[in-house]
Simulated scan of single mutants.
Amino acid sequence: MSFLDRLDSTVSRYLAEVAGPHERLALLRWQIGERHALDRRETMPGHVTTSAFVLSPDHTQILLIDHVVIGRWLQPGGHYEPAASFHESALREAVEETGVAAAVLHAWHRGGDLPFAIDSHEVPGNPRRNEPPHTHHDLQYLFVADPALPLTAQEEEVHAAAWKPIAALAEIAPLAFARLRALKPAS
């Protein structure tokens, strides 16, 4: 199955099974319908990214990064890189940016590739890469890891990686934060 067919199937399933009534993902669905190369960062007005909400087993902490370009704390993630599943792309970004060890896909996903949230959001341009402002269609996945294990920030993209109280996510990703509050911790 091609990347776009896989993405179309994933987005359709998300809209049917997870999305709230105001989540329409109009731009993403239009770009899929127009057959844009959404797996390429040059594709405008937007392209796919993946990110990881890495939780402590008791759901009281979340792993965040201090992003060099954006200049604020965010969940680890980045431009989609080819992988067998979207969640594997998200996990690869988390490991690269934070050095988090032994993270596992959260039980909410039931071993599948359905995103916990899809957040299409505007990002500033990057003059170093000659990128104008554009949209990231971020497929977001949940993982669980031990916050006692050491972290190593990837210094090219990340000033720091740290475990923060889960409430820090309220400003960063309000949709995901609201959904997380309804989840039970891993047992």
Rank of each mutant, 00 (worst) to 15 (best):
E122V: 08
L149C: 00
S120Y: 00
R110K: 12
G111S: 06
A102S: 09
R128G: 04
A103R: 08
L139H: 05
E93W: 15
V158K: 06
Y141K: 01
I166R: 15
A90D: 08
A161P: 06
D113E: 11
A102F: 07
P133W: 11
W108V: 05
E93I: 01
P115K: 04
G99R: 09
K184A: 15
A107F: 00
A117G: 01
A94V: 13
A90G: 08
E156F: 07
L149Q: 15
P150D: 07
D113C: 10
D119K: 03
A167M: 10
L151H: 08
E156K: 14
E81S: 00
A161R: 11
E97P: 04
A160H: 11
V144I: 14
E96M: 09
V95D: 02
N126M: 03
P132R: 13
L151S: 07
A173V: 03
E81R: 10
G99Y: 12
D113T: 06
Y80R: 02
A84F: 02
A162Y: 06
E88P: 02
G99F: 04
A83P: 01
A117D: 15
H121D: 01
E171C: 07
V95T: 14
E171R: 14
E157R: 13
I166N: 10
E96Y: 00
S120L: 03
A170R: 15
E81H: 00
A160R: 13
D113A: 08
V144A: 06
A83H: 13
A182Q: 15
A83Q: 11
L149V: 03
P165A: 13
T98K: 04
W163H: 12
A182M: 14
P127M: 08
S120G: 12
S89A: 14
R128V: 03
P115M: 03
F116W: 04
P115H: 03
P150N: 05
H137D: 13
G111N: 05
P165D: 14
D119V: 05
A161D: 10
G125M: 09
A182Y: 07
V144M: 08
A101K: 14
E81P: 03
P132N: 04
R129E: 11
G125E: 07
A176K: 10
G112V: 01
L105S: 06
H136Y: 15
A170P: 04
Y141G: 03
W108C: 04
N130C: 00
